[in-house]
Amino acid sequence: MTIALWCILAAGFLHLPFVGAAKFGGGRFDNNNPRDFLAGLDGWRKRANAVQLNSFEAFPLFAAAVIVAHLLHADQGRVDTLALAFLALRVVYGVLYLANLATLRSIAWIGAQACVIALFVISA
């Protein structure tokens, strides 16, 4: 199994630290109504939940890009590098989101999306 394929697994769980921060970073989490609880958050905990939701949004296209790159036999070194860069940028994105640094966060988001696009391009 390649590094890039392991990155799909890692990306699938990338939301967990952020949802953990949102749910257990203070206050009383209500597991009977988790969506209502998360909707009522504010400040950095609300941003942590937003990171979680955005992680779910970013995952499918990244996973597809890695799988397409494998199916079309793109250069494995480049695929692995782009997959690792995507993960790193998504972690940076999350940290910047928690820190409320919107412009830098957007740059990290664009960088991660560029990795996904590059995975498709190198597969062509």
Rank of each mutant, 00 (worst) to 15 (best):
A63Y: 08
V116A: 09
F37Y: 13
I3T: 06
L101E: 03
N32H: 06
R105F: 00
I8M: 05
H15S: 14
S55H: 03
G94N: 02
A4C: 13
A21Y: 01
C115V: 02
T2L: 14
F24G: 08
R105D: 00
D75W: 08
A124F: 11
V92M: 00
R35A: 14
I107R: 06
A108C: 11
A58L: 09
Q113R: 15
D30C: 07
H73A: 07
G77T: 12
V95N: 01
I67N: 11
N33C: 08
V66D: 14
A102S: 10
I122K: 10
I3P: 03
R47C: 08
I117P: 04
A21F: 04
A21R: 05
L16D: 15
P17Q: 11
R105Q: 00
D30F: 09
N31C: 12
S106C: 15
W44L: 05
W6E: 11
A88W: 09
A63C: 08
I110V: 08
A50S: 15
V19A: 11
V91T: 05
N32K: 06
Q76W: 06
I3S: 10
K23V: 09
F56G: 14
A50D: 08
L96W: 00
Y97F: 01
V66E: 14
D80M: 07
D80A: 10
F37E: 09
D75V: 14
L53S: 14
T103P: 07
G25M: 02
R47P: 09
R45G: 06
K46T: 04
L82P: 04
V91G: 01
L72P: 02
H70I: 05
G111A: 06
I110P: 13
D30A: 09
G94M: 01
L119M: 12
L5Q: 09
A22E: 03
G12F: 03
P17N: 15
L38K: 08
F56D: 10
W109G: 01
L9M: 09
F62I: 02
R47L: 06
V19D: 15
A112Q: 05
S106D: 14
P17H: 11
E57V: 14
F59Q: 04
F86A: 11
G77W: 15
I122Y: 02
H70V: 04
Q76V: 15
T81Y: 15
L89W: 00
N31G: 12
I117E: 03
G12A: 03
A85H: 07
K46F: 07
L87I: 05
L87V: 10
A63Q: 10
G94K: 03
D42I: 08
N49T: 03
G43K: 06
